Amino acid sequence: MNKATRRTVLVAGTANVAIALAKVVAGVLAGSAAMLAEAAHSLADTLNQGFLLTSLYRSDRPADAEHPFGYGKERYFWSLLAAVGIFVAGGGFSIFEGVLTIQRGGEATGAVFAYVVLAISFVAEGSALLRAIRQVRGEAASQRRSLPEQARRSSDTTIRAVLFEDTTALIGLVVAAAGLTLRELTGAAFWDGAASILIGLLLIVVACSLGRTNMHMLIGQAADEEQRRAITGEIEAAPGIGTVLELLTMQLGPDALIVAAKVAFTDDISADDAEDVADDVDRRLRERLPAIQHVFLDPTQRSSA
């Protein structure tokens, strides 16, 4: 998954670098707060792509003595920084610039170049979004989920960040175009400033959503309910195991899951048999859910009656 995610992030980052500079020029020439807000949005997204690429490379390192479960959780740390970047660099600047424009006012200047930049940006962001959607759709098909469900439940916060950022970028472009058009038609800078504030608020909502998701992953989020049911079913289907008394799971990364279960063995299971059963459970779980990296069973004895 990392290879596909890395390509998706690179496509989104390349698009952001190109259009960020064009938006800055368009914003200055048109004197538009909404365009400058969009420039800040693209610059923040460009910085965030750097954070996300860093997360992909660093989280891919193998486990070692100091980190026996690997570095998968580092993906969530860098994704959290990306969310903070969206909040501060994108949302904060856009709201500030919008309020300033409404207070100061301003004259409507030529906006032709700004419209051209918005159109090109829409195509570039749309292409990046389509790539992200294709990846999420492929993952959804393998998990037998719908696209919205996969986007909501995926443990890969990197691809989720790209998906949300690109979607927000397209909405922001529409808002910027509307604000610019209303400013040109009415001559009132209020509409331009209002569009900038709306873009900022939109970015803050996305940043808070991504930040909350990464916070849960860093704290130690469990596998989803569907996966927990599958794990419980596989363990209880093993010969010699009566029931699962307690199941603990935790995401170690987008492709890594740890399982710890307290299970009740039947009385006719010897110590040697219990070891074979544990090995069988480990194999069955890894075949059912390849993301499972570690399985720990805590056996207790319970009568078969």
Rank of each mutant, 00 (worst) to 15 (best):
K3H: 14
L10K: 03
L10F: 10
V11A: 05
V17C: 13
A20Y: 02
K23A: 03
M35G: 05
A39H: 06
A39T: 06
A39R: 07
A40C: 07
D45G: 06
Q49A: 03
S55K: 01
D64G: 01
E66F: 05
G70V: 04
E74T: 08
Y76R: 04
A82C: 07
G92M: 06
F93A: 08
S94A: 11
F96R: 09
G98Y: 01
T101H: 00
I102E: 01
E107N: 11
G110R: 11
I120P: 05
S121I: 01
S121L: 02
V123S: 04
L129M: 07
R131Q: 15
S146Y: 13
E149S: 15
D156T: 07
T158M: 02
F164N: 05
D166G: 04
T167W: 06
A177N: 04
L185P: 06
G193F: 00
A207G: 07
C208Y: 15
L218F: 09
L218R: 08
E226V: 15
A238E: 03
G242R: 09
L245S: 11
A256D: 13
A261C: 05
T266D: 14
D267G: 12
D268S: 14
A274G: 03
D279G: 10
I292T: 03
L297H: 02
S303D: 13
